[in-house]
């Protein structure tokens, strides 16, 4: 464990807690893409298959349980909660996320480190996580209004992956044989998807104006 990875995990944890807090307190999911949340639940479900078979550390197991619990409860809130579901913008959240899942499955079958079920599912979760934010970013472009909790949520999500890139660089230089192109490339693609959001987020914060994404 290094400071970059710990900071990344904490930022990631904080992003899901911010989102849960927003939905739970104001009983609204306005501006939140259910598709992105479903994709994240799928990412965690396919990545943490080893939660009961490979014990790595208490920290690792606790964080996996928190991420699984929070992502599925966010999906439950938006789908089932009688008040929250009314604020879900079904017409705007139209990104066909099935078009993301299939290519990730195919890519995971083609490019992986080991052709086993667990490894292919793990690789699938990496590819899917890289693109899972797309429905949310498309929704933001459409609705154009970004309440600051949603903006903070997306900013924290992007920051977590950026910190993980620093973690990989650190581990590359401190641990021999630590070379994982699949993890690094998908993590880099994911971070680049946030780049333009970061740009507008930073400028709106600097000029202290409401965050507007260009149409």
């Amino acid at each position: 464990m290094n400071i970059f990875r710990l900071a990344g995990d904490m930022t990631h944890l904080f992003s899901v807690l911010v989102l849960l807090l927003k939905i739970h307190t104001i009983k609204s999911c306005a501006g939140i893409s259910l598709k992105t949340q479903e994709l994240y639940a799928l990412v965690f479900a396919t990545r943490y298959l080893d939660i009961f078979t490979d014990y790595i550390s208490l920290y690792n197991t606790c964080m996996k349980l928190i991420f699984l619990g929070s992502s599925f409860s966010i999906v439950w809130y938006i789908r089932r909660h009688k008040i929250v579901r009314r604020s879900y913008d079904k017409e705007q959240d139209t990104f066909r996320h099935h078009f993301l899942i299939l290519p990730c499955i195919i890519l995971a079958l083609l490019i992986n480190e080991k052709f086993t079920v667990k490894e292919v599912m793990w690789t699938f979760s990496l590819y899917l996580e890289a693109v899972a934010i797309l429905p949310q970013l498309v929704l933001l472009q459409r609705t154009r209004n970004i309440d600051n909790l949603t903006g903070q949520y997306i900013f924290l999500l992007g920051a977590y992956r950026s910190l993980y890139i620093l973690n990989w660089i650190y581990r590359y230089f401190t641990e021999q044989h630590y070379v994982h192109w699949i993890t690094w490339i998908s993590g880099l693609v994911q971070t680049l998807l946030y780049a333009d959001f970061f740009y507008y987020y930073f400028h709106s914060w600097k000029n202290n104006e409401k965050l507007q994404l260009p149409a």
């Binding site: 990875r5 995990d9 490979d54 790595i56 690792n60 996996k64 991420f67 641990e175 993890t183």
Partner: peptide, 10 residues
């Protein structure tokens, strides 16, 4: 071997 992989990451 475990810590050489990224499986110890979340």
């Amino acid at each position: 071997a475990q810590d050489q992989s990224t499986k110890d990451e979340l």
